[in-house]
Amino acid sequence: MQKKKNCTKNYHTDTRLITTGRPTEDHACFVNPPVIHASTVLFESTDHLYSGKAKYSYGRRGTPTTNALCDALTDLEGAAGTVLTPSGLAACSLALLSACKSGDHVLITDSVYEPTRNFAAQVLTPMGVDVEYYDPRIGGEINELLRPNTSAIFTESPGSQTFEMQDIPAIVEAAHARDILVLLDNTWATPLFFDSMGHGIDITIQAGTKYIVGHSDVMLGTISANERAWSRLYEVHGAMGYHVGPDDVYLALRGLRTMSVRLKQHQASAMALAKWLQARPEVDRVLYPALESDPGHAIWKRDFTGACGLLGFVLRDCSQKQAFAFIDALELFGLGYSWGGFESLVTYVDPRGYRTATTWDEPGRLLRLHIGLEDADDLKADLEKGFAALVTPR
């Protein structure tokens, strides 16, 4: 939970992932930082304690273990500082709390991760924040929704279930003209595939549970902020008492080192599966911005350098019962929440129940896939079992 240091920006990204966040002063000659379990920090004297000169004050406010991960992420994001939270949802929630107060107006994309929407309804609205949802494809026209008391715009590109791409530069330009903060849930792309700070984002968020950790065994959230937003974020983080255990931080650091090679494989397999699904007669359309046929492809191609393993597809002329039969026939695709691990996953999605600024009018049934690190041909064969199961009566 420190400001930026150990910067490796002169190296290529793959090299930076290996070298960043490894300050030698805290762990001598060891490759990995120590896993320090600590609450109390002992001081040499009253002067050492009360002068504010000590590097560490209390386990909750940082150890060599947590600082190594924060420093690495701050470097990779090009940020002023980074804090950690116990989950991706906690990161979204804390970032919003740091960017608004009672009486403020906050804009949130209608394609937002649904638990973030629930936080807004259960916490922000009761505390006096006016929350308004907007069409994710609004672009620069978001200017028409801005008010004198608008304090923040929460973006997510692409949307976590319906994959709409947002014109982030246009939204940033409109917001910054009125001194409004722009937040981004960048879990899908990570800083490897979308340079959020370089595109003007003030606060960037990741569910580190996904691609940073990469092995489906840790809950983690990360928030990085620029100079403008950092001080307030750090204050609110401390006031909320957030802390992530050292063993989880260690696993996140370990995952970070291989994130680039994993993402490249996720992307290659996802593109292969997306093109294969697109050619299936049972599929109405595939939701994956890296596909040329995707409505958001032009924005993705302009602003992004890659795509991850998360995509969706709409089954044509299909009932919910048939969609469930499709899912139940699969063997390699696990049925479960989250994504970003080494394994492939599938979930049934119905956005009709929560949209407020837009509508989801697809007549078919939407399934979301996370394409893991299995062989792509094996995954295709598994999906064939699902398509065969569609003969189930409606």
Rank of each mutant, 00 (worst) to 15 (best):
N143I: 11
W276V: 00
V41A: 03
Q206R: 01
K4L: 15
S319N: 02
V182I: 04
R254M: 07
E374V: 03
G62R: 02
D75I: 01
C318M: 05
D130M: 12
G386N: 08
E173T: 14
A252C: 13
V123Q: 10
C92A: 13
I168N: 03
Y242E: 09
D179G: 05
L390Q: 12
A389H: 10
N6P: 00
S102W: 07
H105Y: 09
A68M: 14
A298T: 14
A272H: 07
F43W: 14
T125E: 10
L291E: 03
I180H: 02
P191H: 10
C92T: 04
R352V: 00
D303A: 11
L73E: 10
G334R: 09
V35H: 07
I36V: 15
G88N: 05
D378S: 09
H215K: 15
S293N: 10
G59W: 05
A72I: 10
E173N: 14
G103W: 07
A225T: 03
I108S: 01
L287E: 06
T109A: 14
Q265S: 15
N32S: 11
L251F: 09
I223T: 04
Y234K: 04
T82L: 11
L183P: 00
H243R: 13
A72P: 08
A90I: 04
D179E: 13
G241L: 06
D71S: 14
P126F: 05
Y211A: 00
A325M: 12
E374K: 07
L373A: 08
A279K: 11
E384N: 10
A388H: 13
A207W: 08
P281M: 05
L94M: 12
W300S: 00
L220E: 04
A376V: 15
R22Q: 12
A54S: 14
L84Q: 09
L310A: 01
V218P: 05
S57F: 03
L146H: 05
C70R: 01
L315M: 01
F43R: 13
T63C: 13
Y288H: 06
D130S: 11
W300G: 00
P136G: 02
D202Y: 10
